[in-house]
Design a protein around this nucleic acid. Structure first.
Lengths: 142, 142
DNA sequence: AGTTGAACCTCTAGTGGCTAGAGGATGTAT
DNA sequence: ATACATCCTCTAGCCACTAGAGGTTCAACT
């Protein structure tokens, strides 16, 4: 039986985060001691590890909820889990593409700066005038 | 003189966002009509464009505040603006590196899925077991 | 001058995914 | 019995907005 603190340590989660996951019903309500402290077993450890790892791979808590549901039905076909992962992959790829464009723009900006007065600063100039940019970078989201 | 709506349209900002920027003192309090409606001039248009463009390049509102301050002192040396931009570039590069690792992991996951039952789903298996991963991907932040 | 209706106003609350802190109770080791 | 680390609940805060309620103003048209 694990206290919330040792569960936190084992999974690399903060204590408050575990309580937060319980509050939003991503983690089940665990057993309690007579004094009211939470005690966890292996099932909870596995579930939290799954959640943490999914978070590290960038899945949203909603997506994780779906994935956990799917894991509870071992006989259903797995294309749903597959679809969620593919969706996540697409999103990651979109973000990378967008950040690459930003990287180029920032790089150019920084290298064109000659280090004079702010009045002539290339960095500020580019920020002032979008048309000095090579790429579009419309949406924010990154 | 521009209404808040036309300023919004010209800069690609939402009306509420402009009011929010005013509230956090990123935008100045504009003049008002007798009836109390906001009216904007060219200075505000320029300032908001600068803000929007900086946001598109991923700068935080705090960084933008600094950049705006710097722009107001044309005779100061520009290495501060330069440093802010370099910081931003570094952050973008870190995010790209992290997302690249995620991309590889997700790609592997998705391609190893054979489309059977969820019990044998490679996607769920990888999520369950971090040691099946090639990379570390410790922090979340992405 | 009166009427319509789009755009404006303020204020409050919600989003995601936590994080921090107050103020007090419990559990364990000595 | 005592110390004190860890636990408890509850509230509020973070970033950068976004949405909606409920009411007012502006500009155009008749």
């Amino acid at each position: 039986m694990l206290t919330i603190g040792s569960l936190a340590k084992k999974t690399g989660t903060k204590v408050q985060t575990i309580r937060y996951y319980e509050q939003i019903k991503l983690m089940p309500e665990p057993g309690r001691t007579e004094g009211g402290q939470r005690r966890y077993g292996d099932a909870e450890l596995d579930r939290l590890s799954f959640i943490r790892h999914s978070r590290q791979l960038g899945f949203s808590l909603d997506a994780i909820r779906e994935l956990l549901d799917l894991g509870d039905h071992p006989n259903r076909p797995c294309h749903e889990a597959d679809a969620i992962a593919r969706r996540q992959l697409k999103q990651v790829e979109r973000r990378i593409a967008r950040l690459e464009a930003l990287r180029m723009e920032l790089n150019r900006m920084v290298h064109e700066c000659s280090g004079g007065r702010t009045a002539d600063c290339r960095v500020l100039e580019v920020l002032r005038d979008h048309s000095a940019c090579l790429t579009d970078h419309e949406e924010i989201e990154a």
